[in-house]
Design a protein around this nucleic acid. Structure first.
Lengths: 157, 157
DNA sequence: GCCCCGCATGTTATGTTATAACATTTATTG
DNA sequence: CAATAAATGTTATAACATAACATGCGGGGC
């Protein structure tokens, strides 16, 4: 087993801040708080759940507070939106370009982000064969993760 | 060029009704009306746009009217939801099982549904390699279709 | 025929997700 | 320190979706 999250969290936040700086942008407090929540979450989080957490510290926070942070994080590649759930996850590896394939467990709600260049290439090829030029892509798979499929009862809601 | 839509529309609706019957279900008037709207649409349609159309004939129609029809059509494989747009399209070939790859033009909003078994297989393989069992998948690509990329001005909003 | 049951629809209300619009504050820089 | 760009605060509302319960409707058994 690896060591606990909290240690990695600080590291990840620092790396994210540096990543932003490299892009000429800033990881402000609000953005960092939202990202920290996403990084700490077991699965994905909904915007209004994030808002509720943020409001514990900043009671005046409103929907735009969290949506702005999310918009920024997604644009910066630090987070992804799961369109099929209207939820958000931290990106597992924002420093390397990738086209995430999201495996979303319907039982424990954990999300695994894979990168498969051959899959992306095949998709690009399909698009190109129809004269379509790709700007963005979203691949989401719903089902059961290994633990849940194997009858694990610990991860259930 | 192929001949006009109206002719095909009746044919498609009939085929859809037969498809439903084969499954022990019914393509009721409401469901058929919604499907007809989707089949006639150039691109995708939003639930509330469908509702507005339906209300021209049935002024008392309410959101559940259209959402129920959409739920049915999607479950029957007659339509798909575009998660990234919260919109719906008619399925291009409901009689053959397929995992649609959706090419969504950001300019003219037309949607092309492709079927690529090798892509689907690769995706299933990726999932399986992580012990993930796939129940459903959604692949959406945003970008520019051939016409719009080539500077066509006719399809713009 | 009529009762019963399952499915579809009607109807009202509300829940959930997201953004518009404008005011204010904060950071940057010349 | 003024100018201005970026971020945040604040209020309101738009857009998407479903819960819950009532009503109708159609087919099979008796």
């Amino acid at each position: 087993m690896k060591h606990a999250h909290t240690h990695n969290l600080e590291h990840d936040l620092l790396a994210a801040a540096q990543w932003c700086a490299k892009r000429g942008e800033k990881l402000t407090d609000q953005r960092r708080e939202v990202l920290a929540l996403l990084l700490s979450a077991q699965g994905s989080m909904k915007a209004y759940d994030l808002l509720a957490e943020i409001q514990k510290q900043r009671p005046t926070a409103a929907p735009p507070t969290v949506y702005r942070a999310l918009d920024f994080l997604v644009a910066a590649g630090l987070a992804h939106k799961l369109e099929s759930k209207n939820a958000f996850v931290a990106c597992c590896d924002f420093e390397h370009p990738h086209h995430g394939l999201m495996l979303i467990c319907d039982r424990c709600h954990k999300v695994t982000e894979l990168s498969d260049e051959r899959l992306a290439a095949r998709l690009a090829e399909d698009a190109a064969s129809h004269g379509f030029s790709v700007a963005a892509q979203d691949i989401e798979v719903r089902g059961l993760c290994r633990n849940c499929r194997d009858g694990d009862t610990e991860g259930a809601a």
